[in-house]
């Protein structure tokens, strides 16, 4: 059951992105920014977390889930460390993802070359 929920909710979030891509002049880069910011603000209100509880990876794997994680992180940091958490919370919560992407991307650049199309 949780696989079906993840599939449907995750798929629907992607459809929203596809509609933005086809119907507006927004490029994929702009849609990524929009989704992360939207996820963060919805996460700040606590609404997105309800979707994560319902759909699991269906809500956390798409980029609004990345934004939601930033909102959760900033709240946790403020609870633990006070005002400085406003600055550190977001960065800390994306550290694992961005760090992994940086490391793997660097290694990939040393191993692979761009293929002609």
């Amino acid at each position: 059951m949780d696989y079906l929920k993840a599939f449907v909710v995750g798929g629907l979030i992607c459809v929203v992105g596809q509609i933005l891509l086809d119907k507006t002049r927004l490029t994929s880069a702009r849609i990524l920014v929009l989704f992360v910011v939207a996820g963060c603000l919805l996460g700040g209100l606590g609404w997105y977390e309800k979707l994560v509880e319902f759909a699991g990876a269906g809500a956390s794997v798409p980029l609004p889930g990345f934004g939601n994680a930033l909102a959760k992180g900033v709240k946790k940091e403020i609870d633990e460390n006070g005002f400085i958490g406003v600055l550190t919370g977001g960065f800390k919560s994306m550290a694992a993802g961005v760090g992994a992407a940086m490391l793997f991307s660097f290694l990939a650049s040393q191993i692979f070359s761009a293929k002609e199309k």
Binding site: C14, V15, I31, G65
Partner: peptide, 8 residues
């Protein structure tokens, strides 16, 4: 399309 770039 968006199915590839909207997820992480």
């Amino acid at each position: 399309g968006a199915g590839s770039f909207v997820p992480i």
